[in-house]
Design a protein around this nucleic acid. Structure first.
Length: 933
RNA sequence: GCGGAUGUGGCGUAAUUGGUAGCCGCGCCAGACUUAGGAUCUGGUGCCGAAAGGCGUGGGGGUUCGACUCCCUCCAUCCGCACCA
């Protein structure tokens, strides 16, 4: 081996851009100089760019995670260079199940593992070169943070929702009103309360009063059926239960009645719905929220019972079809089922109810197609005709929606139709336009028939009319129903915010603010107690100073994430959640980037939380997130080898169909360009050490497929490895270059070489043989044109969040400037500023090499000028009957007529005209010429 | 079933207002430099065809001088919701 051989790569390294030295140097500089620190500066316009903060899991980041952070970072840097005062913080959603599960297994305090994970996340994030103001970091599990989560809970507990004023108001005002005139005049969001007078109120003792008030509070306690898993000692969400077993562990889950804390989010249903209008969110996301809220307009109607004084209340969106109601159906859980069931049907009804109770929600959903039900023996009375109508119970009526009872109109509802068919019940047509013996006519098109006073009306008129009749007779009223449920707000867990609540004689009271934060107590185990109480029941002295027991439930994950964007505005304030000063300056989030998986969870709760804080004067804007972008998922690109069945032999992709093979995932790190590194493969798994291979062209070609990025598919790519190999700037550019931000796209490490070459090509514009060669000579028109086209494209693309095309524009520009051998400061300086948003390290390095002392972060983004991008010659594509045939260069200023003349005279045109006269010539100046023959 | 989105070279994609389809990059092919190349540089690369030319943006139809773009219809894939009265 000759010495020159060994030296060669070294010399090359010196000449090339050395990201391994440059990137850590600037990261240290930014940290030391607090380059990205931000204050509420009233002289400057504010802009708030927020990322959904991560849950710090033990696995660290893969290349999919930083995608949104990179996009928001580019935008934040761009806005800063545009003169905005940019708030761009980061923190951690640090309470959560995985840490607790790990604690149960290992006995380690979740705080310890969480702290470790955060440290690892921070290292990874720092390497990517983000412009976060880390002095504003928040962690939801930090007592100084959750103090304000607890504080907000106390506020929710102490407020009710007044429908008259359409906002939250202090519960004390409600108490005054009760003392003055009872609850008759109150129009508030509440549970089921009976009417009472002022005298009755005043006669109640404190316990009774508190019970009544509990029905009005925005944070309230109520009994509910939950998915209780005795083995895990906790309540599970619907998606944590499959086929009656817990997803984790596979333990039996039962429906259990339990007291839980709730947030009265339904009070805000209309405002949550209406607020969507003003938001710059994607239509699909808004639609998801609309569906989740599920507002439907209709009426409630009371049906009397034949042999009982009670009435059945139903909700219907089609009160106009009331004369078509030939039977009624109650949910099996409906309270009146017991009462109306006659002796003859007792057994069958009991059996049906028992069977329904044993089924999980998921099971009931999966049986959608089967019609089942049971007659109760009871009859209701039609509110208008007085006819008796049979009452059934059936699974297809849900206890949790509407009133849990329906009037069944088989002529105009497909499910009722199927049910009527199955049980041989009469089907009556009340709206024309279909054939009800064939199937139900569900549309609102048609004319009312067989409907007494509504005959001849169209559907909308009939709906208005019947509601008037119902209201005047006092047997029903107009009603808006929602699918949205109040949010269950308690968990039987350890690793969450403790409730600032204690119990006096079984009645819950909130702690005074001075007692906050109520810190999580140490426990001996992170499991429920033997008697099934939550882990906090294990804590010693878990009581107030007076000896009252404290609440043992903790808050769910969304508690801490519902107001973190507010806390970033004033993260160290220990007097209030946020100062009026800070919030009146920063207002709300201008740009929010995060995953679509939070569409109906976090994004609904946060909006609700924010509206409440707005009502109570804590924040100044009704909506928290003005614009929201869901970054698309980065998928994995998996590689496969094909093992011959029953043998330790692998067949190359192109030959696999000639053998009986099965595909096996292979680690993408030992595959390059779909060619398997056979030696690495043999070492990868001892099982394959002696493997044989059937090759094509001397190589083993792997198959590939796009799948979720997951350990089990061996397709996870770690950003640290890529940064080590190519640098953070290359990673950032490549993540953006991959495709549109909002679109899901597969990760293919192969392509990163292209942006890596771009970075080095950029560097070479400013350097020759490792010497900085930028000159102060004036730039040529061509050079300026390349630059100004780039400024225009990049700024327009950033404004519309089209980062992939912006990267492409940089490449085009650098290619052009390279061809022009441009080394002019006039061009290269603005280019460095622009590049710095995307690739901050090389941008900062070039900026300082250009002689600047301040960070490029505060440089002014260049403006493009029309005069430099204008063309004086236009290359006209000339088409005949819409097909482009040749191109012709003409001066830009030419009139339509001149262009037409010039084109028709051209020799190329003669060929295509073939002696015929053109019927018509279309000239779009500066664009195109089309000749019609 | 309902709602939303997406279909363009071998791959990721581009075409901002109806105006040259395929920019930029990967891969591939050829060449240069080289003892060597998985380095670097240069050129080529939608498909068919020797060429002339023809065909091409999921399929079919329409509007238009002109359609990836607008309209109708069908198909496929992905996501969300799902007996919501």
């Amino acid at each position: 081996m000759s010495p020159s051989y060994r030296n060669k790569p070294l010399i090359q390294d010196q000449m090339e851009y050395n990201f391994r030295e440059v990137e850590p140097r600037w990261q240290a500089y930014w940290k030391e100089h607090k380059t990205y620190r931000v204050y509420a500066d009233k002289e400057k316009p504010k802009y708030y760019v927020l990322d959904m903060f991560p849950y710090p899991s033990g696995a660290g980041l893969h290349v999919g995670h930083p995608l949104g952070y990179i996009a928001s970072d580019i935008y934040a840097r761009y806005k800063r260079q545009r003169g905005f005062n940019v708030l761009h913080p980061m923190g951690y959603d640090a309470f959560g199940l995985p840490a607790e599960q790990y604690a149960i297994q290992t006995g380690q305090h979740p705080e310890v593992t969480t702290e470790n994970n955060i440290r690892r996340y921070r290292e990874q994030l720092d390497k990517i070169g983000f412009s976060f103001d880390w002095d504003r970091e928040v962690r939801t599990c930090d007592p100084s943070y959750y103090k304000w989560t607890q504080w907000t809970f106390i506020q929710l507990f102490s407020h009710y929702y007044n429908y008259k004023t359409q906002k939250a108001e202090p519960i004390a005002g409600l108490e005054r009103q009760f003392a003055h005139s009872g609850n008759v005049d109150v129009n508030a969001a509440c549970g089921e309360v009976t009417r009472f007078t002022a005298v009755e109120w005043l006669k109640m003792d404190e316990k009774q009063k508190r019970e009544v008030l509990m029905h009005y509070r925005l944070a309230y306690q109520a009994d509910t059926f939950v998915n209780w898993c005795p083995k895990l000692g906790t309540v599970l969400a619907n998606d944590e239960v499959r086929e009656g077993l817990s997803v984790r562990g596979g333990h039996p889950v039962e429906r259990k009645r339990m007291k839980q804390w709730f947030l009265r989010i339904t009070a805000y249903a209309d405002r949550l719905l209406d607020g969507l209008e003003e938001l710059a969110w994607s239509e699909s996301l808004k639609e998801m929220q609309r569906n989740w809220i599920g507002r439907s307009e209709g009426a409630t109607i009371f049906f009397g019972l034949k042999d009982h004084r009670e009435k059945i209340e139903v909700f219907t969106t089609r009160p106009d079809t009331v004369f078509g109601a030939t039977f009624m159906v109650l949910a099996p859980e409906h309270v009146l089922v017991k009462k109306i069931t006659t002796k003859d049907y007792q057994q069958q009804v009991d059996a049906y109810v028992a069977a329904a109770a044993g089924k999980s929600d998921v099971e009931r959903m999966s049986e959608v197609k089967t019609v089942s039900g049971q007659f109760t023996g009871g009859y209701a009375v039609h509110p208008f005709s007085g006819e008796p109508i049979p009452v059934y119970i059936a699974d297809y009526v849900l206890a949790g929606y509407g009133t849990g009872a329906i009037m069944a109109v088989p002529g105009h509802d497909s499910r009722d139709h199927a049910f009527a068919r199955h049980f041989g019940l009469p089907i009556v047509e009340v709206v024309t336009g279909g054939d009800v013996s064939e199937g139900s006519h569900d549309d609102k098109e048609g004319t009312l028939v067989n409907s007494d006073f509504m005959d001849g009306m169209d559907v909308p008129t009939a709906i208005r009319t019947v509601i008037q009749h119902l209201e005047s007779k006092g047997i029903g009223e107009r009603k808006i129903n929602y699918r949205l449920r109040d949010a269950i707000f308690s968990r039987q867990r350890y690793w969450g915010e403790p409730f600032p609540v204690y119990y006096k004689e079984g009645v819950p009271y909130v702690l005074p603010e001075s007692a906050l934060p109520l810190e999580l107590p140490p426990v001996d185990k992170y499991l429920p107690t033997e008697s099934g109480e939550p882990p906090l029941a294990r804590a010693k002295n878990w009581e107030t100073e007076e000896g009252y027991p404290l609440e043992c439930n903790t808050m769910p994950g969304f508690a801490g994430s519902s107001a973190y964007y507010i806390r970033y505005m004033d993260p160290h304030n220990d007097q209030e959640l946020v100062s009026q000063d800070a919030v009146s300056y920063w207002e709300n989030v201008d740009l929010y980037i995060g995953g679509a998986e939070h569409a109906t969870g976090h994004l609904i709760y946060a909006r609700f939380w924010n509206k409440f804080l707005c009502d109570t004067g804590v924040v100044v804007r009704d909506e928290p997130f003005k614009k929201l972008i869901n970054q698309g998922m980065i998928q994995g690109r998996s590689n496969f080898v094909y093992r011959e069945k029953g043998r330790n032999r692998f067949i190359s992709h192109g030959l696999k169909d000639q053998y009986d093979t099965m595909p096996i995932h292979v680690d993408v790190h030992i595959v390059e360009n779909d060619i398997l590194d056979i030696n690495a493969f043999r070492q990868w798994n001892p099982e394959y050490k002696e493997a044989e291979f059937v090759l094509e062209d001397g190589q083993y070609i792997c198959g590939w497929e796009v799948e979720k990025m997951s350990k089990s598919f061996h397709n996870v790519v770690n950003p640290d490895d890529l940064i080590e190999k190519y640098g953070a700037d290359t990673l950032r550019l490549y993540e953006m270059f991959l495709g549109p931000l909002e679109q899901a796209k597969p990760w293919d490490t192969q392509g990163i070489e292209g942006v890596f070459r771009f970075i080095r090509k950029l560097w070479r514009l400013y350097h020759k043989n490792s010497t900085f060669i930028v000159s102060d000579d004036p730039a040529s028109d061509k050079e300026k044109k390349a630059l100004h086209k780039c400024i225009r494209k990049v700024s327009e693309d950033i404004e519309r969040f089209s980062f992939n095309t912006a990267v492409s524009a940089f490449m085009v520009c650098v290619n052009e400037l390279t061809d022009l051998h441009c080394n002019k400061r006039e061009v290269l300086e603005p280019l460095a500023i622009m590049v710095a948003s995307f690739a901050p390290h090389i941008g900062e390095e070039l900026w300082h090499l250009l002689g600047h002392k301040e960070s490029v972060a505060v440089a002014r983004f260049p403006e493009w000028e029309e005069k430099y991008v204008r063309d004086d010659q236009v290359l006209y594509p000339v088409s005949f009957n819409g097909k482009t045939r040749f191109k012709m260069e003409l001066p830009a200023g030419m009139s339509k007529e001149e262009v037409e003349k010039a084109v028709l005279e051209a020799p190329d045109a003669q060929k295509w005209l073939d002696g015929k006269a053109p019927k018509k010539v279309i000239v779009v100046p500066g664009k195109i010429v089309n000749v019609v023959i």
